[in-house]
Design a protein around this nucleic acid. Sequence first.
RNA 1: GGACGGCUAGCUCAGUUGGUUAGAGCGCCGCGUUCACAUCGCGGAGGUCACAGGUUCGAGUCCUGUGCCGUCCACCA
Length: 913
Amino acid sequence: MGEKNIKISNPVRNKFLSGANGVNKDLPKAYNPQDYEDKIYEKWEKSGYFNPDICVKKKVCAKDAKPFSIVLPPPNVTGHLHLGHAVMLALQDIMVRYHRMKGDKTLWVPGTDHAAIATQSKVEALLWEKEKKTRHDLGRIEFLKRVEKFAKDSHDTIIKQCKKMGASLDWSREIYTLDKERNLAVRTAFKKMYDDGLIYQGARIVNWDPKMQTTVSDDEVEWKEEKTPFYYLKYGPFVIATARPETKFGDKYVVMHPDDKRYKKYKHGEKIKLEWINGPVAATVIKDKVIDMEFGSGVMTITPWHDAIDFEIAQRHNLDKEQIIDKEGKLLPIAGEFAGMEIRKAREEIVAKLKKKGLLVKIEENYIHNIAVNARGGSLIEPQIMKQWFIGVNQEFKRGGQKTTLKKLMQEAVRPGKIKIIPERFNKTYFHWIDNLRDWCISRQIWFGHQIPVWYREHKNTKTQKHKNNDKEIYVGVKAPEGEGWIQDPDTLDTWFSSGLWTFSPLGWPQKTEDLKIYHPTSVMETGYDILFFWVARMILMTTYLLDEIPFKTVYLHGLIRDEKGKKMSKSLGNVIDPLDVIKKYGTDAVRLSLVIGSTPGNDVKLSEEKIAGYRNFTNKLWNISRYIITNYQLSITNYRFNLEDLTLFDKWILLQMRNLVLAVSEDLENYHFSQAGERLREFTWDDLADWYLETSKFEKNSSKNQILSIILNDLLKLWHPFMPFVTETIWQEAGNKNLLLIEKYPVLDSYKEIWKETNNGDFYPEMILIQKIITAIRNARSENKVEPAKKIKAVIYTKIEEYRKLIRDHEVLIKGLKTGISELEIKVKGEKIAGAIYAVVGDIEIYLIGAIDKDKEKERIKKEIANYEKMIVATENKLKNKEFVAKAPAEIVKKEEEKLKSWQEALEKIKG
RNA sequence: GGACGGCUAGCUCAGUUGGUUAGAGCGCCGCGUUCACAUCGCGGAGGUCACAGGUUCGAGUCCUGUGCCGUCCACCA
């Protein structure tokens, strides 16, 4: 055999020092994350490499490198880090670090969200608690100062916590949904939509929160079940049913299905005089198909001012609408003697009156009724007709000469696959939401937020009649109008209006910035599936409309984090895992792994502290693997050259395993299979590298070991880095590298192409596996026979195959060394059966272990093995007896089955012997 | 009412286009600490892949139906 030199190139940016300076050969036995994490993060941050501009400047990535960008879903400025943030930061950081190492121009933009309603109500609560004051006591300007101060203080907390997760965000670009630039973006967007006729002011039914004194959007209304009495009331000749008699004062329309035979004699539009709560009314009959004939009596009265469905009926038939309840949730004068009462409190008295008047037919107790609650504040929603600002999603406008609507734009961005949603099934959810989308109410009556860029003044100039609005002049603009008497609309915008601009407003829009040109559309939007409607859909709406671009190419939706029983984590249940607690206890890397591995997109993750502890153990394992390599070997060099003849089977094997790992992990990351990538890495690290290769390296000494272990550790740390940045960077530093792992070049397949080729794609694997199998078989046989580990025994191996005898002889030292307890090894062609020895078979090879047998245990073991072989043989024989299988299955599969059968039969015969 | 998801080992979950004896981690059982790691090593037990049909030479995987659990949407007056 001729000598063959193979090269393994190592595309390092900076080489491992060859042991001289900087290598810490005195590493502690256990990795303690707390000793390193903060320092490491500081080092990264100071390096400036989170900023792609600096990467270009320092030639870490090429000027014209492919961009990769993510805009961080902004945490609430007043929030604190929870596991939802943690999983988002972990996944995005994996992508970002991977792409940065790959040499892409990688940008990850951080920001915080002002979270209008949530923040304002928090401050209002504090204000009341501490000073017994309301926002009105302070006035708008003073109150907003307080909110901003509160926001600023807690901003630092959440940012610091994000850094704890190791997130490699470009802090130099940090932004805030309520800062000046974003305000400009909001106003610009508003004006454009207004000018296109997409934003309009109108009196429509909205979700009104009487406690917070503001509207909330449809998506922020939660429905809760409530047990309540259900009242059947006499309404002239009809019986109507209601859970809310207190809203019924103004009811003067009675609605039924046009096909309902029971009410055939009543004609649409017919007026019927009847006695009602506060006296006689003339009710008008309305026929509408929305009525469910099966439900109750099939007849209902409507309250258009305070019910969305009733409102629609009233719109359809052009009916009168009357307000019954005021904005504080109290009854209006229409309620007669009940005026001024809180609606809920009035109920009993109203029912009493109905009863007295003989209008109460019956009460059904325990009726389950759904009530609407504001998801942000928790108070009951009372629908009201109010003048508000809306975005008309079905309003036509022109785009490139064609007529379209916002709804259509949202559909067209996803339907032809321009935007890919992972997992795919959420496409359906997305389209369903769009199909049912109603005009979006964007005005809020709270103070904290982007104030609506609309100004009014008393009408002065008759020439501006076309802008007439309720006798007032109206001005919509990016800047406040010049001139006397203009007063800005006091309302603020729904927080999702500004969030909808979030992929491009952070990049500087409406200015035509470089960032916008390079990084938009962004590469990935990674967020929880619970926020698909609130946010993802609205970003698609805004971006397609304002920029005529998609906001992102891929949407990756992670699941929600639940406790180990699958319950939602909540303070009241006491099952909350605080990421900061577990980071302190187990380290950031362990927390990250526990959130990423074992979770798939769109599916919830059940997290337990045991799981995190498991990954802490793994982190420590990696530390000790590295520690062993660093302290026992001379790490070196950028390019390696080996004589193939010098490499042992295990040397070649570990290099090819690494090659396969580089290939698989890269593919996984490109395809968003984060969990799978992590599992592969873990398997390689623990099973292949630690349990096999490092163990063999203790017995097989050759001149190539330094280099091989340099390659393996080098590439392994790089592959792990996106997942567990802290421990890998720490090891990298302790190994004497002066530069940061953060910006090292990601491993490439190309490095391994020569060894891949020269070994015919791993043609030595069967031999290597045979050695492994012999070792495992011996360990197993010993253990089953209860041979004490310390006891040394003699092994005799028979095989007719000469190559195998040579192979075994060549690996004698391994077979003896790797926890088999073999002191003496004899290798023969064929000999006598050895009585009283433990017996094992590996393919053609028979193994006798002499001097330690436990006869009963051995008999039992052999019996079990025979039964196992017999079972498999019968199954395979049956398969092969099946003529159709042989005829129809691919020849390759049939051949495999035949080979299997043959080898099992041989083994069985030997064992039986 | 509509839609979606899950059901694989005691627990938490992988299982890509159908094809070796269905895998992993944790837990459990047995044995073991000088020599990287007890946050460890070696070995082992444990599964009718929810159920019933169907397609196929062959189904955890594809189709139909059923059951249980979960989530979202709708909001029945």
